[in-house]
Design a protein around this nucleic acid. Structure first.
Lengths: 151, 151
DNA sequence: CAGTGGTGGTTAAGAGTGGGACGAAGTGGA
DNA sequence: TCCACTTCGTCCCACTCTTAACCACCACTG
């Protein structure tokens, strides 16, 4: 279990970056691994934000869904089909900028300044105003769990 | 000495150090391990102080939240997202100084003299005046528990 | 009085951003 | 089918601002 955790890329922190007219967004330098990196772009189910992860992480995620015995086979099949149809490839250019498909930006409302929110194995891209609300709403939960684990 | 418990660093003592105009703070030499060290910076939920720990300790902490059965799945998910978005990478320079993001300093009110407070696996950075108040408030409890465990 | 620890400034490298150049791919007409 | 034209995508360069590495200094302390 410890080995799996350390194998996963960890994206720490929250950044505010700009999306230019060509829908390019700079990936925080601390989050970059190689010069040219490939990502999977996956809008969340409510088009609130854009999930970004490595192809390996995406494979891991869909494998987890497949091997989960507590999900009915039919549900699983539907989920996996939706997962794969929603996902898009994204390539970073030599400057470390991710180019987002125009359609995704429009759907999620990514324009001008956006929030990049870290996570384990993946990060999220939010419209700034929407992210601020999400962060504030959920604070009580954070507090509660923090108490439980003694943080 | 690879067991999880003994791997935890213990930071002992309380120090008063200065934060300069570039938001650099010297880590007490007794607390340093290598020349250049990497830390995770995590403001507490009320922005009272700044938690500083090693990436390993952070991973341990988030693993603890994940594996705790007494926390509902939804809460856990929200907590982990916030935990990762709040956490920032911090790198110490060759002089053993930790550079803090400007925004964190402003939020927590770290300026001029600050208090570095040790702990198990992590330490805290406080605004001095706030720390003094927190310390005084909590002294009776310390006394009480000390009596109970026969310290 | 030498060595270590904390502090302050300067400088060079790197990160984020904008815009132009070039080639590939797609489109329409002869 | 071929060619001219447009469009799109990637790369490259330039600029600004931030960041981290480097150097120098002072104050203790053993």
């Amino acid at each position: 279990m410890d080995s799996i955790v350390s194998a996963q890329t960890f994206y720490a922190g929250e950044f505010r970056h700009a999306i230019d007219e060509k829908n390019r967004i700079t990936i925080p330098s601390r989050w970059r691994r190689k010069n040219t990196e490939e990502f999977i772009l996956l809008p969340d189910s409510q088009n609130q934000f854009l999930l970004v992860m490595s192809p390996e992480e995406f494979a891991r995620m869909s494998a987890a869904a497949e091997s989960n015995a507590s999900i009915a086979a039919r549900e699983r099949r539907i989920f996996l089909r939706q997962l794969h149809s929603r996902a898009q490839h994204g390539l970073a250019d030599k400057q470390g900028r991710l180019v987002l498909p125009e359609e995704l930006c429009r759907k999620i409302g990514l324009k001008g300044e956006v929030a990049l929110v870290g996570g384990r194995g993946r990060f999220e891209i939010w419209n700034v105003t929407r992210w601020k609300r999400a962060d504030e709403e959920e604070t009580p939960t954070y507090q509660h769990v923090a108490n439980v684990i003694g943080l």
